[in-house]
């Protein structure tokens, strides 16, 4: 596969490490009353769609950036590649 890195351009996916569903950005509030339940869902349950999938890849043999790919799990077509940091911020993550 070729991942079109938003800054570096097309690179062989072999340079990257795949983590999985981008829902892992949405880490629950540890102080919530049902934190255990929320962390269980966060840590273990996946949509696992047959189709569009937002997922995290790490450019380990490159610029060390985490990326969010929108990739089709049936065709492998990649329609979007974003810097995960930007995605995380846009989803309201802070510090």
């Amino acid at each position: 596969m070729i991942i079109n890195h938003p800054i570096l351009g097309p690179r062989d996916a072999a340079e990257f490490v795949c983590l999985g569903d981008a829902c892992m950005i949405d880490r629950p509030d540890w102080e919530a009353e049902d934190a255990m339940q929320q962390f269980h869902e966060y840590g273990y349950l996946r949509d696992n769609p047959a189709g569009q999938h937002q997922e995290l890849w790490y450019h380990e043999q490159g610029d060390r950036s985490w990326l969010v790919l929108t990739r089709n799990t049936l065709t492998h077509e990649i329609t979007k590649v974003e810097m995960a940091r930007d995605v995380a911020r846009s989803r309201g993550r802070d510090k």
Partner: peptide
């Protein structure tokens, strides 16, 4: 499993 379970509205601790 993911596809079929989704028909029953289930999310599974599984990835394909």
């Amino acid at each position: 499993s993911g596809r079929v379970a989704a028909l029953a509205g289930m999310r599974l601790p599984i990835e394909s």
